[in-house]
Simulated assay, not measured.
Amino acid sequence: MNVQSFGDWLYATPISSTFRETSWIIPTVQSIHILAIAVVVGSALVSELRLASVLANDEPAGKVVRRYLPWLWRALVVLLLSGVMLIVAEPARTLGNTVFWAKMALVLFAFAATVMLRRPLLRDDAPPAAKAVSWLLLAVWIAVIFCGRFIAYT
């Protein structure tokens, strides 16, 4: 089954129809999705700016990361759940969209980089490349936001 066939099948399911036909579901889920994006980006922004030595230099980097990482993980779960609901509601809008897949690749990259590169910080060990990685991850999260916005226009 290819992506187009899967999207057509998903669109015809009762749950997809319910999501589309109930006037408040999609706007509510989109609002929740956007709020979760704000939490992810806000948490990443504070953590990455601390690691880049731009913000909160009076606190150890590990302490700042430990404070904001749980917010980031919880918000990513909310993003996953709300994103799945949006895909179920309008599969053709996302599954066949190259920008959507670029966004997903960027999110997976940011997630993997955060897991691998932030683990030492939980022990207050800042790796030497932390500053460069911080700027890279900030750029990736900004790209995720732009891709998310452009999904509607492609």
Rank of each mutant, 00 (worst) to 15 (best):
R67G: 09
P70G: 07
W73R: 11
T94Q: 07
L69I: 06
I87R: 00
E90K: 04
L95W: 01
G96C: 04
A75P: 04
A44F: 15
V40L: 15
R74Y: 08
P60F: 10
A92Q: 07
A89V: 02
W71S: 11
E59N: 07
K63L: 11
P70R: 07
N57H: 06
A75V: 02
V54E: 12
S53N: 13
L79T: 01
V99W: 01
Y68S: 04
I87G: 00
L95G: 01
G96R: 14
V39L: 13
V88T: 03
F100D: 01
M85V: 09
L72H: 13
A89K: 01
V65Y: 13
L51G: 15
W73D: 11
N57A: 10
L72T: 06
L80I: 07
A38D: 09
V39M: 12
V40P: 12
A89H: 00
P60L: 08
L95H: 00
L80Y: 03
A56T: 05
V54A: 13
V78I: 15
A44Y: 15
V88Q: 01
V65R: 03
V99N: 00
L95D: 01
V99H: 00
W73P: 07
R93S: 03
V78S: 06
R74M: 12
S47T: 15
R93Y: 02
E48H: 13
L69V: 09
L95K: 00
V40S: 12
V78E: 05
F100Q: 01
R93Q: 06
V54Y: 13
P60T: 12
V77S: 08
V84L: 15
G83D: 10
P91Q: 00
A52E: 02
L79A: 02
P60V: 13
I87F: 00
W71K: 05
R66S: 14
R67M: 13
E59A: 13
P70Q: 06
G42C: 06
N57M: 11
R93E: 03
N97A: 02
G83W: 05
L80G: 09
L86S: 00
I87N: 00
E48I: 08
V78Q: 05
S53R: 13
V84P: 04
T98W: 04
L51M: 15
P60W: 09
L49W: 13
S53Y: 15
F100S: 00
L45N: 08
V99L: 03
T98V: 11
V99P: 02
A56N: 09
L72C: 08
V88S: 02
V40N: 10
A38C: 14
R93F: 04
T98C: 03
G42L: 09
G83S: 01
S47D: 12
P70C: 08
T98Y: 06
Y68G: 03
T94V: 04
I87Y: 00
K63C: 08
A89M: 03
P70L: 11
R67N: 10
L81H: 03
A75N: 03
G83I: 02
M85K: 00
W71M: 13
P60R: 10
Y68K: 02
Y68M: 10
W71R: 06
L95P: 01
K63A: 09
